[in-house]
Design a protein around this nucleic acid. Structure first.
Lengths: 243, 243
DNA sequence: AAAAAACCTGACCTTTTGGTCAAAATATAT
DNA sequence: ATATATTTTGACCAAAAGGTCAGGTTTTTT
């Protein structure tokens, strides 16, 4: 690994990376339609997708340091050199994976929008997040590893879009409080708690299966989890649990 | 690294490792008092402690794969070869660190014992766990990384002592439910939620500081967190929050 | 059909890393 | 004091890892 003089890795953030892949820089946008399939850039799109998918899996296992480009390449079914053709460095690949996760991240929070009924909105949000924990356990774990490690690669996102979103949604919660619709609570902490209660079922699944004596966390467990979380939050806010 | 043929690491569990350090096996227990200081074995004890402390810090940063024995040795202030004198392999050292964490782990759960008042007991437990998240953030993060990675090294602990403990304490919670003292809830999930709500302040601290626009999570934040968690749980169970 | 662009890949290089070793230094027991 | 056990450490090794590169193949464009 030639370009690694000091310990300090140059920390490529999600903002700065993610373009400029391939020997030639980011392949000017496809002319005309660009429907995702078709002719130009099709090979690239397909291979990039395969590599990203493999990378997500491998990074999820042991984080950035634990993953090897060789293993990712093997899993993606391409020679290592080909992987490095699309993603110059391991860092670039890692950032690209995080970008994908981050994007899908925001949809969920966006959901709680509006001045709809607090109980319904919160229940909906919890259900969505729990669903994500079940169906996107791997990205969730990768995200967790990144944050536990300090979240260096996603710092701009955290301090930017996410923070702003939390402020927005927090304002809505505060309005509910002011209107006497829910009990008093610190809005950001409410979000932290909901995130924790849902993501724990992805991140700490291994601990739960062991404790519960199950081989996997099946749908029934997730239903119990959703119900438990919903009850605690809604009742905790002085609302009636819809059940 | 000579002894690494296949990818499959031999997974030394906490049960199997942790003794047999040093060139000569586990140094027969010190005769007489063994007060921790004194003459015989003093050097060993001191150095082992230093190395373990350094190892905990380094492993916490990037998990097993991300840590290097060289860095741990540097941080501990001993030559790398000396580290390998006390801990034959990186795995041994990792397991030893986990053992230490695991031991301190159980105390907290042990706390919720008894047929005392549910509200008081739970509030106490949450406070204790949150305190641990604040004061033992590093071990908490290391534990999280281990579990996210599948918890291979602590499998016996999870399926053994922890599972049994959860069963015991779960029975107490169930009794509370049966006696009509608290609302109906799935006991294991209640524990999962409490663990999640408290540990998230250690594991996801980086995300919170960014979102909150703070530089660190200070005492005030932890007070808010404790209050929020306590309220949600107690009210969620139909209890009066003690505030 | 020819030129240009994009893609593919085996071989290779350098740094890092976990681990070993043998000889020296220090501590402990007799 | 002498012998024995423990501790210390610089030098060294082989495997693995990230990354490069030149030359070949395929695809796209003109």
């Amino acid at each position: 690994m030639p370009k690694r003089k000091t310990e300090k890795a140059k920390v490529v953030t999600v903002a700065s990376a993610s373009k400029r892949a391939g020997r030639a820089a980011g392949k000017a946008t496809v002319s005309s339609t660009d429907s995702g399939n078709g002719s130009a850039g099709a090979i690239r799109k397909r291979n990039v997708a395969r590599i990203l998918k493999a990378a997500e899996a491998v990074f999820s296992k042991d984080g950035f340091a634990g993953a090897s480009t060789a293993e990712i390449a093997r899993k993606a079914g391409v020679p290592k050199a080909n992987l490095h053709y699309y993603f110059r460095t391991k860092q670039d690949l890692y950032s690209a994976v995080l970008v994908e996760i981050v994007e899908s991240w925001l949809d969920a929070l966006e959901e709680i929008e509006s001045d709809s009924d607090p109980a319904a909105a919160l229940a909906q949000y919890i259900a969505k997040k729990m669903e994500a924990a079940k169906n996107s356990a791997q990205p969730s774990r990768l995200w967790a590893i990144e944050i536990i490690g300090g979240g260096r690669h996603v710092q701009p996102f955290l301090k930017g879009r996410l923070r702003k979103l939390v402020e927005e949604k927090g304002a809505i919660v505060q309005k509910w409080i002011d209107q006497g619709k829910i009990e008093d609570i610190d809005p950001p902490h409410l979000f932290f708690m909901i995130w924790a209660m849902t993501q724990t079922y992805a991140d700490f699944g291994a601990q739960m299966t062991a404790v519960l004596g199950r081989r996997t966390l099946d749908d029934a467990v997730f239903e119990d989890a959703t119900q438990t979380a919903t009850r605690l939050i809604l009742r905790g806010l002085g609302l009636k649990s819809p059940l």
